[in-house]
Structures are given as structure tokens and as C-alpha cells.
Amino acid sequence: MAELSTIDIIGGGPGGLLSAILARRAFPSARVTVHEAAARGVTWGFGVVFSTQALDFLQADEPETHALITPRMERWQNMVLNHPDGPVTLDGIGFAAIGRLELLTILAARAEEVGVDLRFGAEVDPSSLRADLIIGADGLNSRTRTEANAPSLTHMSNRFAWFGTPRPFDTLTQTFLRHPKGALNAHHYRYAPNMSTFIVELEEEAFAAHGLAEMDETESATYCATLFAEVLEGAPLLTNRSIWRQFPKLWCETWTSANTALIGDAVHTAHFSIGSGTRLAMEDAIALIAAIKAAPNVMDGLTSYQATRPPIARKIVTGANTSAQWYESFSTHIEQPPLDFAMSYITRSGRVPPEKLRALSPEFMAQYEAAQCPTS
């Protein structure tokens, strides 16, 4: 088993905090420090969504933290697609969600409970650290990532912005709107009894036609709330760094360099349409600490992490990129009848064969197949 006396973690998101918790348990005599540039209690965005079983991995590796998080989550068993010509329910497509700030608060408290030194408002230069192990969990704009990690970064063409709303939705819902200036899509789900995330997305031409580039956050929120007024039932859209962005597709071929390892969005991104970004970061943390704990020294542990973790993550990232590609032309998909549109949507990542779909969503599949073969 590797022996470590100091571990520095750059970034206090879910992956960074979980890696700190796991490191303290694996190496109880080590000093574990998390350096987070933001102040305590400050984060961007609103809710974090997981598939229903997505936190099972956490129960196996950190049951105490799992027990703290799961009672705070909102859960539902079905998903709804609001097609312009009528809604379709996808039964069995369950999810769970929690506020991002609440998740971070739980993880920070747990980290301090096990003896992690949390330093908020502390932006550090990774090259100045002299720890036995350095973990870069500092997100897309990572200062820990270098050219040695062989990063590849491109962007999707669609524009999107994350809003919140005090309108709690029953399920994870997607609402698609036709509009003379270009179609819009909203991904929305509740993450607290009285709050929901509301992500608005447009294709590139529609974004320009709607004039959103010329609007500030408040103007964008008001404009989008007006367009989605029916599904929002008149509720407003709230902002929190709700700027219009294009989704970044990041992948690093090399996840380690010297005594440094990258996790989460610092090393890869996964499109929000499959809800796996936070899960991947947390699973990276688990894999990294487990690899180092099982190795005779840090360098062998990092070699093991590099060999075993990227191939697993790559499958999910590839599925996310395929899913994202479907959204790049959602305005054409919504011209299909609702049931055909729903089938196109649910099979967009190429990872759900018909037999699996029949077991997963029997009611939807029965409805879809009956529509394909109507009785005479």
C-alpha cells in the first residue's frame, strides 16, 4: 500500500470533495487539503440530476456520505417529453436530483468531519504545491491540466443557458417549442420541493434570430420565461451565471503527469443531456484513490489509474457526445409525430436496443408499437 503524508486537491466541487473524503479514509495519517477558489457557500447553477441508480456506486465506496445525500434528493419514475403536438410519457426513465449547493454543503461537512482541511477563496498555482499527490479537480478551465495531458477541446454549436424556477415539476421534462424565429427546447426538473432547474437550448441560427446574444442575463430570463410561460405556469426564471454558452467537448488522452492526476471536467466533459457529469467526477475520484491505495507507491497507483479509468469513462463520454449530436438538429426531429419523436429521442445515444427498451419502458413501447401496426 502506498504511503502518503500530504495530498493537495485543487477544486472543491463534488469530485474534489469526494476525493478528499476518500483520501482521508484511505490514508488517515496524511494531511489532505482542498483548495477552492470560490468562497464557501458560493456555486453556479441550480440542481444536479442523476439516474435512479447512479449513486449506487457511492453506497459501496462511501456509505456514510451516501446516507447523507440520498434522503435529500427528489425522485421520480417517469420522464415526459412535451412535443408541440402532444406530450409523451416515457415510463421507467427514473431520475433523482439535488441542489448543487446542498450537495456541496453535505460533502464539505463530511470532509471536515473526517479531518480534511478546506480552504475556500484560495486560488493556488499547482506548480507551487509540493504534496506527495496532487489532484486536479478544478473543472473545464483547469489550471492543473497542461499540454502534457494531451487535451482535445471543441464545442457543440447549440447555445444553452441554465436558469432556475420556483415551479416544481413532477418529473424530468423536456419541452420543445416551435417558433417563427426558430425552435427552442427546455430541460427542466425539480431538485427541491419548491425549486427546479430550467435549461433553455437553441440551435445556432435560432439563437441569432431570437436576439439572445444582445440580451443580458435578466433580459434573457424574462424573454425565455415569456416563451415558456405555459409550462412554467407563469413562474419566473431565476439567474445564477446564466450566460449563453456552447457545450465544450473535452477529452485528455493522458490523465496523469508526474505526481498529479486529473478528475472530472478537468479531464473530460459529458453533455448534460445524459446527466452524468457529476457522477463521472465522483467515480473518477473513487477509481483514483482506490488505485493509489492498492499500489506500492504513488507512481504505480497513477499508472494503474491511467490504465483502468479512461476506457470506462470514454464509453459514457462517447454516449453523451452522441446524445448531444441529436440536439444539434432537434428542430427537425420535432417535425416527427410525437411517438416517433419520442423513439428518436430515447434511442439517440445508440445504447438502448429495442429489447432493453421493452423491459425499461413497457407502456411507452406498447403504445409505440401499436401505433406502428394499427389494427384494420
Rank of each mutant, 00 (worst) to 15 (best):
K293N: 12
D300K: 12
R241W: 13
G319P: 05
Y327A: 00
N321H: 13
V317D: 04
A320F: 09
Y305M: 07
T278P: 03
E335F: 01
P337V: 06
L288A: 06
A342W: 06
T303V: 06
S344G: 15
H268A: 10
Y305W: 09
T269I: 02
M282G: 02
T260S: 11
A313L: 09
H268P: 01
Q336W: 00
T318H: 10
F341N: 05
G264A: 15
S242E: 04
R309F: 02
E328K: 05
D284N: 11
V298M: 08
I334G: 04
N297M: 05
A307S: 12
L339C: 09
R279M: 15
I334P: 03
F330I: 03
M343Y: 15
N259F: 07
G301E: 03
T269V: 06
N297E: 15
I263H: 10
A294V: 06
F330T: 03
I274Y: 05
P310Y: 08
G264R: 05
T303D: 14
S273C: 14
S242M: 04
A295M: 07
S242A: 09
T254A: 12
R309C: 03
I289E: 04
T318K: 11
M299H: 14
P310E: 08
P337Q: 10
L262Q: 07
I243F: 12
N321V: 00
D340S: 13
V267P: 04
T269K: 08
T269N: 09
R241D: 13
F247R: 00
I286A: 15
R279Q: 15
E253F: 04
I346S: 00
L339M: 13
G277A: 11
A342Q: 05
G264L: 01
N321Q: 14
I243G: 09
A295W: 09
Q336T: 00
R309H: 03
Q336D: 12
G319W: 00
F272S: 13
I243P: 00
P311H: 10
A307T: 12
A294T: 10
Q246G: 09
Q306D: 07
L280K: 00
P338D: 06
A295N: 06
A295D: 08
T260Y: 05
A285K: 03
L288N: 10
Y345S: 01
G275L: 03
A342R: 03
T256W: 04
R241N: 14
M343N: 13
K315Y: 04
R309E: 05
W244M: 09
T322E: 14
Y305H: 07
A291M: 01
G264P: 07
V317E: 07
A266Q: 10
C252K: 03
Q336N: 13
T347Y: 04
S257C: 12
Q336M: 12
D265Y: 08
E283R: 13
T332Y: 11
Y345R: 00
I346E: 02
M299Q: 15
R279T: 14
F247W: 14
T322Y: 07
P248G: 10
R245S: 12
G264Y: 01
M343D: 11
A258W: 08
G275A: 15
K249N: 13
M299E: 15
I263W: 05
A342V: 08
W326A: 09
S257N: 14
E283G: 05
T322M: 11
S242C: 01
W255L: 01
K315Q: 15
W326V: 06
A261K: 02
D265M: 04
I263M: 07
R314H: 13
Y327R: 01
M299S: 13
S273A: 14
I334M: 14
A294S: 15
A261W: 08
P310A: 05
